[in-house]
Nucleic acid binder design. Structure first.
Lengths: 223, 223
DNA sequence: GTCTATATACGGATAGAC
DNA sequence: GTCTATCCGTATATAGAC
């Protein structure tokens, strides 16, 4: 509920900042895009402001001119990344017009598309979030959006209908996220095990769009 | 097959190095244990040799005396961590005396125990492995152990018996790993969503020992 | 082997010219 | 706004006494 407002504000701000700069190849934007790439790939500690500057094709001093410090720039990227990540989620979770199974299919579809484009997002987020747990996530009201979601209500309803023993809903959430997200986090290991190249891996992830809903459905009936 | 030899060698070496030092509170060992903790928690880039020295209760210079450099020390920890991680796996995967379902149960049981004790292992490994893909994993013959395993042969047999459409075995491997490992990687997010404390979270992970085999079994019949 | 003191390198940030 | 040159803190690594 509240989160949608936050997202709306986020989107508005993005729209504003995009219209504010006449040309999208402005230095500020170039730095932000470069920072996103470098931070996502290396994480905060291993990222070098010099790398970001080079990637952006500008000078190091300019980075500080626009963003004051490495940390400020990072916080910005972190916030935007959390936004892209949860944005895919918020609407789907609270859509009153779709069934549980439809939601699962949409989530698999949308997230796999997102992660095929930016596969580093989950490992980046989860890595930077360790130690720092609630602080940032609270800003996004993640808890409320998920815990009070239509999706979770529908799951509880399904469990009741199937007369399954009570179970903490977090198991379901964890399983859904696991099946969608984990292959991207574990891709170096999985590619090695399956001796796959990038293209084969991507093809496999696309297959999962159809497979995950089937698996989840079967798990919902398991006893 | 081959990997077991490697692990055996690894175990032997560990045994040797343990007997070599008369007292286990030797500086060298204290540093190694401290390094494991700090590297696991912060990763290579964010870890400070000073932190490790303090954690070990010794002086910074001593760290370089024993291990030459931060990187050398890290490589050692990395190797030992990969070993603890895959050690749990190798034997189970190629046990001729157990069924597929039994193997799944044992894997869930063993890994969850391991990860409850050292929850940082997966995020540490996967984070340090990005970019560095095959290099280290090849040393461990991970590919051969998994790809030619009894477990995978049994999975293929099951798929055939259940007359299910052909599917890349990596889906199965990924799903199994996902269900076991992901909750630990995603724990900051999951704890926030479920407003759980550490104890509640651990209890949930213990529940999964029994749940994962059931889920996997149902997925194996899904079409 | 273990310490204190120090050298050296690296990376983030700023001064100041244009 | 954008650059070059430089400062300065921090972190790794070593020298040398004990």
């Amino acid at each position: 509920m509240k989160l949608i407002t936050i997202f709306a504000i986020g989107i508005t701000q993005m729209a504003i900042s995009k219209t504010k700069s006449k040309h999208d190849d402005s230095a500020e934007l170039k730095i932000k895009m470069a920072a996103r790439i470098v931070f996502h790939k290396k994480g905060f500690a291993a990222a070098r402001t010099r790398d970001i500057a080079r990637e952006a094709g500008i000078n190091l001093a300019l980075l500080n001119y626009y963003f004051r410090s490495k940390e400020k720039l990072f916080d910005l990227i972190m916030l935007e990344t959390l936004q892209t990540f949860f944005q895919s989620m918020a609407m789907v979770f609270n859509d009153e017009t779709t069934t549980l199974e439809e939601k699962v299919a949409v989530i698999a579809d949308k997230y796999i598309d997102l992660l095929l484009e930016e596969p580093e997002i989950p490992i980046f987020l989860l890595n930077e979030l360790r130690g720092n747990p609630t602080a940032l996530l609270k800003k996004f009201n993640v808890k409320k959006v998920v815990a009070n979601s239509v999706l979770l209500r529908q799951w509880q309803q399904t469990m009741k209908e199937n007369k399954l023993p009570p179970m903490h809903p977090l198991h379901f959430m964890a399983n859904l996220m696991a099946l969608v997200i984990f292959p991207f986090i574990g891709s170096p290991m999985l590619k090695t095990i399956g001796s796959m190249n990038e293209d084969q891996f991507k093809k496999m992830m696309l297959e999962r769009k159809a497979l995950i809903p089937v698996w989840i459905r079967s798990m919902l009936k398991a006893k």
